[in-house]
Design a protein around this nucleic acid. Structure first.
Lengths: 361, 361
DNA sequence: CTATGTTGTGAAAAGCTTTTCAAGTTGGGC
DNA sequence: GCCCAACTTGAAAAGCTTTTCACAACATAG
């Protein structure tokens, strides 16, 4: 089907070595031959066989993106950031998500690790220790939103020189709680994320800290179990309504969940924000469009995806990746120092907490 | 790093041919050796190098998923359906989307075509004729939501034996329009999808047909330009409000767009559905959670993704794929007959068109 | 003009698997 | 007991690229 390097060599009247050298710019070739090879390659529409290339242990030209079960806009946005940068560098992404258990996760990680030049791993649910034993060796990896660097994963990260990027769950939650308290809320209820998710834990901690700093009794925080879906938010909202002892503010674990809460309150004829304030998290594009517009914490998820891939490219292709990281980035042996980025999460106050609506927002 | 087939052969005391035969069950091997090979492979954690395999022209174990620019939940749901089935068959998905122009699209299509065993193409925006010249040869392809089978693509589809699945844009839009008219609407406004998208065209046709059948003057349908984002819906909604001559119903091109319309109406203190009805399309999980719950047309997007991949697997792995399609599926030469599926799109009436709210929905 | 270094080029090997081909072994029938 | 068939098994080739090695041509310095 596709032309091979031999076809190009024959047409140009040179050896395959010369063709390879011209196309990869890996050594000097005389002007005349170079032109002839270029011409032949163009005429035949030649592009090197990726399988043969990766068999050599060189680049396969692909990236592995391993994700947890994600729903809603968050996923689209994240993948969009990833895809844009990958396309710029002519890299192709294996995307895999929603693994049902650790065994499946391990299998996918291993198989994708064999096929890709680098890995982007987002695994909030799988614990750090499990992850550490599963990591493919000798492959650049960027962790997104994995557990805190200074805990179990630290050793792994240091040893393998991996990068990591996460966002400030605690700070974002702190800001939201602080804002809600400033708006007059005293009795707070949280619809928390999944039990195993450490980020849910962090957000909870942020809320508790804000309550403590504001002089509120942390023990009086009501925590309702939920997850990152509308359904869970809806059910949690119903429970809050039935409970009778109505809180001043319901802080959902993300925007989707908050939307479920909003519906439950609406059905019970409870007004937001007049009777109860509601907040989300992530600030997906949707947040400003629901009724009422949702106070949230902005997570720059698209930028995070983009950064992760840029970083991966830098490690895979070497320093010519360009634009990212200063020269100081290079470690003693010329290898990149691992970087750990914490993306700030900014409060976005909207009507759902009584903040005046601004049309531009 | 990883063990090779030679390592397994050495450990088991046999030749690499025997190892290959055992692992692929491609020929008889004596019981004793078979056991020894199995054992050695397990001990070394051997799995065959995918690059070497695909170099042989055999399977690469991966699928190519080529998508247009998609936003919101629709994307997540679709990919979820795809991923679930792919994982069942141990296939890995190259996902690529948001190509800025035909050149980029062509490049990606070609490169992914070289890397994958089969292609899932969803390309509403790229025209059928362009697509036909770009198709990689000799590769199973499933088209999702590409232009109607009986138009330009027909020849290509027939020739290459490709499958196609789409959903009934026209029927769904017809049902929505009919419903809205039954609810008392006479002056209708449409926020249509992108100019180049043929599905937007189909939905418009469905609406016009419903109007005609109901005895309304089709010429009096107002069409506002939009696209599949909330922002576009918001702007379109603002324009509708400013226009003064308020319609009885606004039919948005999808749920996201409808949510934008809802916000614009809300800001103008126009009540939904009392003053104006609003409808969406796709029936994403969100539709039932917004305020008011959104009348929409249910597109089984997850099922569509799943069907497409099952079909691809069937073509790639041969008839043992199992469960999908009867024996009658096999054509004269034992090859699968191309199948074209039209998924029905069902009306889901909710409060935004005055339909009584049901808690269960 | 010889010795040395530089540059350009092709042959060949390596990377890992599947599959064909040939050879070996075993068993059964006459 | 011998021959043919069937079954097992190993060697080798093919698939396509990159890179090393060796060689040739050419230029420069002494």
């Amino acid at each position: 089907m596709g032309a091979t390097i031999h076809d190009v060599a024959r047409r140009a009247g040179v050896s395959i070595s010369t063709v390879s050298r011209v196309l990869n710019q890996t050594a000097n070739v005389s002007k005349r031959r170079r032109a002839r090879v270029r011409e032949a390659a163009a005429a035949l529409g030649y592009s090197p066989n990726p399988a043969a290339r990766s068999l050599l242990g060189r680049s396969s030209g692909s990236l592995g993106i391993v994700l947890p079960y994600i729903t809603g806009e968050f996923f689209s946005e994240f993948l969009h950031g990833i895809d844009t940068v990958a396309q710029e560098h002519d890299l192709y992404c294996f995307v895999s998500s929603s693994h049902r258990n650790d065994g499946e996760f391990a299998h996918v990680l291993r198989e994708i690790g064999r096929r890709a030049d680098g890995l982007l791993i987002m695994a909030t649910e799988t614990e750090a220790k499990t992850l550490a034993t599963l990591l493919p060796q000798g492959l650049p990896i960027v962790f997104v939103n994995t557990p805190p660097f200074d805990q179990a994963l630290e050793g792994v990260l240091l040893h393998h020189d991996h990068d990591a990027i996460r966002f400030d769950n605690r700070g974002g939650a702190y800001a939201i709680a602080q804002h809600v308290i400033e708006q007059g809320a005293r009795r707070l209820t949280v619809v928390r994320g999944p039990m195993r998710a450490y980020d849910a834990e962090e957000r909870l901690a942020g809320i508790r800290a804000a309550m403590g700093d504001a002089g509120l009794d942390v023990a009086r925080l009501t925590v309702v179990q939920g997850d990152y879906t509308q359904e869970a938010g809806y059910r949690a909202g119903q429970r809050i309504v039935e409970q009778g002892d109505r809180p001043d503010a319901v802080m959902a674990c993300n925007d989707l969940c908050a939307i479920g809460v909003l519906r439950a309150l609406r059905e019970a004829r409870i007004r937001v924000p007049d009777d109860v304030m509601v907040t989300g998290f992530d600030d997906t594009p949707l947040a400003r469009y629901v009724s009422p517009p949702l106070t949230s914490a902005h997570v720059p998820i698209r930028d995070i995806g983009a950064w992760a891939v840029k970083r991966l490219v830098l490690r895979i292709r070497g320093a010519q990746g360009g634009g990212l990281g200063s020269e100081g980035d290079l470690g003693p042996e010329g290898s990149l120092r691992p970087e750990r980025i914490m993306m700030p999460v900014a409060l976005v106050p909207r009507t759902s907490t009584g903040y005046p609506e601004t049309p531009s927002d």
